[in-house]
């Protein structure tokens, strides 16, 4: 099987704060990591390769520093990794990102399965996977928590919906997004880390992929961020003091007043 795993580099914490004086994100001391949901995607790709043979290629669109993350994917079992990087890609929204990733997949030729994490922890949009699937004309299944079977150009998966599980049969090539229930990602191996240190990560540019400059980066983005701000909470709790017994009685009184208990 030829498998592509799409990954994003995200800040290592979602505890990002806005500096109230300058109204900008405080990024000091925050390390970049593999988007946690994407590490499940990578692990699933590597497991499928171990079972069915073939190749896992990790791809990411991002600045040059994302090379480090892609090297890490090699230590975790990816065979190859490619960075899609170009000044023209900057400022991409999900549509332009999906277009660029789809371009990379097309350039790779025959791909059976593309695996993405359910969503990123910084953007939380969960849109790139389905948008890319549509652009590639591939089957798409979101929230996959188990791959039950792959054979004869078909795959059967279990996925988590709001009300329960669905068993979905789809054709290959397919794009899936996976949830964290699907596996427990492995730790890197020492031999993997050593291999990854010397791994060459090719960088593909706009030109390399033959993409339309009007469809990538900010030019290709239909959405614009016009403002960022910290959510405000101005309510202040009425504190109920005293020994636990008194607190409980007092609380129940208040809830009853409001018809809540």
């Amino acid at each position: 099987m030829n498998i592509v795993v799409c990954l994003k580099q995200v800040p290592g914490t979602t505890e990002v704060k806005i500096n109230p004086e300058t109204n900008t994100l405080i990024r000091q001391g925050i390390k970049n990591i593999i988007n946690p949901f994407d590490s499940y995607a990578l692990e699933e790709g590597v497991r499928l390769k171990e079972k069915f043979g073939g190749k896992v290629t990790a791809i990411s669109m991002g600045p040059a520093q994302a090379v480090d993350m892609l090297k890490e994917t090699i230590s975790l079992g990816a065979d190859e990794a490619v960075l899609l990087s170009d000044r023209a890609f900057a400022g991409a929204d999900t549509w332009a990102t999906a277009y660029t990733l789809a371009g990379a997949v097309r350039k790779m030729g025959q791909i059976d399965l593309i695996i993405c994490g359910r969503q990123s922890t910084d953007g939380d949009t969960a849109q790139v996977g389905p948008e890319m699937a549509e652009m590639l004309g591939a089957a798409f299944t979101a929230y996959v928590c188990q791959i039950e079977e792959i054979s004869a150009g078909q795959m059967r998966v279990k996925r988590m919906m709001d009300e329960g599980y669905e068993i979905i049969q789809s054709t290959l090539p397919a794009v899936i997004t996976v949830t964290k229930e699907i596996n427990i990602p492995r730790l890197p191996s020492l031999r993997g880390v050593m291999k990854s240190k010397s791994a060459k990560i090719p960088i593909w540019t706009l030109q390399d992929m033959g993409l339309d400059p009007k469809k990538v980066g900010l030019n290709g983005s239909f959405t614009r961020v016009v403002k960022i701000f910290t959510p405000q909470h101005d309510k202040k709790a009425e504190m109920i003091h005293g020994e636990p017994e008194i607190q409980v009685t007092c609380l129940l009184g208040k809830l009853r007043e409001g018809g809540l208990a």
């Binding site: 922890t121 239909f222 614009r224 960022i228």
Partner: peptide, 13 residues
């Protein structure tokens, strides 16, 4: 919300 809800962003098309 973005960054896990720590930041709000206003977006237009």
């Amino acid at each position: 919300p973005t960054f896990g809800g720590n930041i709000m962003a206003t977006i237009i098309c």
